[in-house]
């Protein structure tokens, strides 16, 4: 979402309003913000790491790596998430292309439907998948006949994760592609480029930062997905437990230190995502500034 705003405005033109409010109002607002962020975000996050590392790094490592079921949960998350992200990247690019480059009946409805997974509770998403692909679901008998397992297996986990994170890439790309317009692409085609050449040489370089941004957000959300995945996983330890499910299970098994250890890894991944996102925003701004300079010179 930030990218689209950054594309729309030159850096430096937003923010920094004149300080007309009295000092005490400013300080009150600032301290309120800091207090809320500390209580709700910073302290709990630090506490997760504190609890996880309370018994030293060696114990922490053992807690993460000695338990085969925990190892499997980490591995499962690392294999489910990339697939969901790739699927959503392909879908996101395709759908953003469709709605920004073509006018067709139902275009507005399509855009509205992209957002639907944001609005539906993940638990409901899980149930929806169950009602489609479960034994008693619409496709149940067919799938059983062919011996294909969707729910309570890897494909179900991918499906649930993909559904929940569907909007991220598309939502990032639509405003970017709208702002860019089709001029450069039209020029490429008129100079004899075929579809692939146009996509790889013109479109992709133009949208790559927005795309990367969407992928990062999608990835972060996919790793943390709990509700939908929980419904379709069947909770089979060492088979369909992803990291967030493992955290819950360990917690319920009174294995608090182990639970915090896995939770800390998830949090760590979230922090990495945050850093990547910030770096990317920084780069986008610099690039825009450079582009503006070049424009000013010519």
């Amino acid at each position: 979402m930030h990218t689209s705003r950054a594309v729309g405005h030159k850096p430096g033109t937003t923010g920094h309003g004149s300080h007309t409010e009295p000092a005490w109002v400013r300080w009150l607002l600032i301290s309120c913000a800091i207090a809320v962020i500390s209580i709700l975000v910073i302290i709990p996050v630090v506490n997760v790491f504190y609890q996880a590392l309370a018994n030293g790094f060696d114990t922490y490592r053992h807690q993460l790596l000695d338990d085969a079921e925990t190892r499997h949960a980490i591995w499962l998350t690392l294999t489910v998430v990339p697939v969901a992200v790739v699927l959503n990247t392909i879908f996101g690019v395709a759908v953003a292309w469709a709605v920004t480059r073509f006018q067709f009946p139902g275009r507005t409805i399509l855009i509205a439907f992209i957002d639907l997974p944001f609005a539906i509770s993940p638990v409901v998403v899980g149930l929806m998948i169950m009602l489609m692909f479960g034994r008693l679901g619409i496709w149940g008998p067919t799938l059983e006949h062919w011996g294909i397992k969707i729910v309570f297996a890897y494909p179900g986990l991918v499906l649930a994760t993909t559904f929940v994170t569907l909007p991220f890439v598309a939502r990032e790309l639509i405003p970017v592609m709208e702002a860019l317009g089709a001029d450069e692409e039209t020029a490429a085609v008129s100079l004899g480029a075929n579809g692939w050449q146009m996509f790889w040489r013109i479109t992709l370089p133009n949208i790559r930062l927005g795309l990367l941004y969407g992928v990062i957000l999608c990835n972060a959300r996919a790793m943390g997905e709990f509700g939908a995945v929980r419904v379709v996983s069947g909770g089979i330890s060492g088979e369909t437990d992803t990291m967030p499910l493992r955290v819950e299970k360990l917690f319920q098994e009174y294995e608090l230190p182990e639970s915090f250890a896995v939770a800390s890894v998830l949090t760590l991944l979230a922090l990495v995502t945050l850093i990547a996102k910030t770096l990317l925003e920084h780069q986008t701004q610099q690039q825009l500034a450079r582009a503006d300079d070049e424009q000013a010179e010519t």
Partner: peptide
């Protein structure tokens, strides 16, 4: 429920 829905 999960067994009924196909958890084998």
């Amino acid at each position: 429920q999960s067994i009924l829905n196909g958890n084998a």
